[in-house]
Design a protein around this nucleic acid. Structure first.
Lengths: 97, 97
DNA sequence: TTTCAACTTGTCAAAAGTTGTCTAAAACTA
DNA sequence: TAGTTTTAGACAACTTTTGACAAGTTGAAA
């Protein structure tokens, strides 16, 4: 489940129109449409507002959002997996200290 | 070992001057200095040229470079580890197909 | 100490990327 | 068909990244 898929399915299950979500997020309807189609990535602020507007746990949405950034950084690279693992290692050791 | 540390130690072990590396990478000496200090991130093209100039395995350098991008995306986030793991999962399943 | 090459730092303009909106078209519904 | 929702394209405003230049610091040799 991608971020855009989640946002769209949540909006639909709540029976909201793009326009209503757009209002709550304080952007143009067209932008919400693009986000749901994966044409645009929400900003961090928009993630916060989307979580509120759609009753999604903020941390869950944030995690998905960050993971897509990471994914885009490495996708298509031969060394993608190694690169991610290396980053993970670094994060883990850093957290310990 | 960070990217900048690797670049600097490799250059030194080969007894090269910044100016010589800069020539091979086709940029200003100051830029190589900044890269070695971690003030600037090399571009992908520069990574290729640096690998050649310093006899570093390209994939190794690329992996390190990508991993630092990933690291920066998530560092400081509460959900950093979860986000990376999620991205890793996605990459792994994608590669299988 | 002076000198000189090596290295570093600050700043700027250009290039590249991103953001959000507007308009108009397409898709859907009644 | 008419009215509403959603989508697409284009654009300006804004931000970030990039690379160079010039001026500064450092350190070693004379």
């Amino acid at each position: 489940m991608t971020l855009s898929e989640l946002l769209k399915s949540k909006r639909e299950s709540k029976g909201l129109l793009l326009r209503e979500v757009a209002y709550k997020v304080d952007v143009d309807t067209a932008l919400i449409s693009k986000i749901e189609k994966g044409d645009r990535k929400p900003t961090r602020e928009q993630i916060e507002k989307l979580a509120l507007a759609l009753d999604i746990e903020y941390n869950k949405l944030l995690t998905l959002w960050l993971s897509e950034k990471v994914y885009e950084d490495v996708q298509g690279e031969d060394v993608a997996i190694d690169a991610i693992k290396l980053a993970l290692k670094r994060i883990k050791t850093e957290v310990k200290n």
